[in-house]
Computed example of a mutant assay.
Amino acid sequence: MNSNSIAEAAKPYTDYDMIRNHTELPDFPNFRTQLLYTFLHKSSTFIEQSELFALVVSLAQLGLDTHDLVSVTNERKEKAEARSRQLKVLAGDYFSSRFYHLLAQAGQVEMTRQMATAICEVNRLKMNLYTRMRQWKMTADDYMQYSVSIKTQLYLSFSRALEGMKPNSWDDMLNGYTRCEVLLDELRRIERDRDFRSGWAFWHLLQIGTKEERRQLQNEDTDPGKLRALLHKYNVKATLFQMLESQFKTLSDKIRQFDSEKLVAELYQIGEPFLRAISAPRALEEV
């Protein structure tokens, strides 16, 4: 099995018509999962568990990401909306239960403990993030750091297991790829009016905008056209592309420091969607 096959291995646990037909699911955490599999497969100690560990961490991440899609309020009473909300809760719980079950079957007690600890840390970080957002105490840099930390916690459970490789290589690669992933997600987000307010661009504009523009941003009833005009005025998309290009260059410099040509090639293959987005911005939706 190669790193691209982990998503296929997860399908028996995620592809259910009841879920797919009545609610949306988050994207599979491909970048981080492929990266984890690649590093575990290079470790003589964990090569036999590389597929299992990559699978279980992806299911645990899917569980957390699915719960994030549950609306905060239950104001919409339509039958379809209520069913969608309920299925997100149940699907998130189910994905999480599969991760526990698979590790228990394999007798991986210590890894179960580490993953459970990481999940607690993810929830703590999310609570801090939401609290700062509600109190308007968030900056764009804060948002980026929280986003990366939240996405990497489960995968950092393997830092000790991979510490025998090049010093700090796992943590550095995980952080670098995840920053690129967040930036790519934020570029897509600004094209969608419905979740613009929960992203990097919103907090960036809130920092650099005029007093009147900040007032507009804080008003939830502001016309989407005005918000889009602010994005254009401050060249937010161009700024995000520049950030992605800079981050990928930093990541590339670190990748080239590995001695194994095969590992370098595999790491570049994982990061190819980032390079494709930088090279052809118009093809962003295809990445």
Rank of each mutant, 00 (worst) to 15 (best):
residue 220 E to C: 07
residue 209 G to Q: 09
residue 215 R to A: 15
residue 223 D to I: 07
residue 212 E to S: 12
residue 211 K to S: 15
residue 204 H to G: 05
residue 213 E to C: 03
residue 223 D to V: 09
residue 219 N to I: 02
residue 216 Q to H: 13
residue 219 N to M: 02
residue 194 R to P: 00
residue 194 R to N: 14
residue 206 L to K: 14
residue 216 Q to S: 11
residue 202 F to P: 01
residue 219 N to S: 02
residue 210 T to Q: 06
residue 198 S to M: 10
residue 196 F to Q: 01
residue 209 G to V: 04
residue 218 Q to V: 11
residue 194 R to T: 15
residue 213 E to A: 08
residue 209 G to L: 07
residue 212 E to G: 06
residue 204 H to T: 14
residue 206 L to W: 13
residue 218 Q to M: 15
residue 210 T to H: 04
residue 206 L to N: 14
residue 213 E to G: 00
residue 193 D to V: 08
residue 201 A to H: 02
residue 211 K to Q: 15
residue 200 W to G: 00
residue 204 H to A: 09
residue 220 E to F: 11
residue 223 D to K: 08
residue 193 D to R: 01
residue 210 T to W: 02
residue 208 I to M: 08
residue 199 G to N: 04
residue 209 G to H: 09
residue 218 Q to D: 08
residue 222 T to S: 10
residue 222 T to R: 06
residue 220 E to P: 03
residue 205 L to C: 03
residue 198 S to H: 13
residue 223 D to W: 05
residue 209 G to Y: 05
residue 215 R to T: 12
residue 196 F to W: 02
residue 216 Q to I: 11
residue 204 H to I: 09
residue 204 H to P: 11
residue 218 Q to T: 12
residue 222 T to W: 02
residue 209 G to N: 06
residue 219 N to A: 06
residue 214 R to K: 12
residue 199 G to D: 02
residue 218 Q to W: 12
residue 219 N to T: 04
residue 207 Q to D: 11
residue 195 D to A: 03
residue 199 G to S: 07
residue 217 L to G: 04
residue 210 T to E: 09
residue 208 I to A: 08
residue 218 Q to A: 11
residue 207 Q to T: 07
residue 196 F to N: 00
residue 216 Q to A: 11
residue 217 L to Y: 00
residue 196 F to Y: 05
residue 197 R to N: 09
residue 199 G to Q: 02
residue 213 E to T: 01
residue 220 E to V: 12
residue 216 Q to C: 12
residue 220 E to A: 14
residue 195 D to C: 04
residue 197 R to S: 08
residue 209 G to S: 11
residue 205 L to P: 08
residue 208 I to R: 06
residue 211 K to G: 06
residue 223 D to M: 04
residue 200 W to D: 01
residue 209 G to K: 07
residue 211 K to H: 13
residue 217 L to H: 03
residue 199 G to L: 03
residue 204 H to K: 14
residue 221 D to L: 13
residue 223 D to P: 06
residue 211 K to Y: 09
residue 195 D to M: 02
residue 213 E to V: 01
residue 220 E to G: 06
residue 209 G to E: 09
residue 200 W to N: 04
residue 208 I to L: 07
residue 220 E to L: 12
residue 221 D to N: 13
residue 201 A to D: 01
residue 203 W to T: 04
residue 212 E to L: 09
residue 206 L to C: 11
residue 220 E to N: 11
residue 193 D to N: 11
residue 210 T to P: 04
residue 214 R to Y: 06
residue 214 R to S: 03
residue 215 R to K: 15
residue 198 S to A: 14
residue 210 T to D: 07
residue 217 L to P: 05
residue 207 Q to M: 09
residue 213 E to W: 06
residue 199 G to F: 00
residue 207 Q to I: 04
residue 194 R to Y: 10
residue 194 R to A: 14
residue 219 N to V: 03
residue 218 Q to I: 10
residue 198 S to D: 15
residue 219 N to L: 03
residue 200 W to P: 00
residue 212 E to R: 11
residue 214 R to E: 07
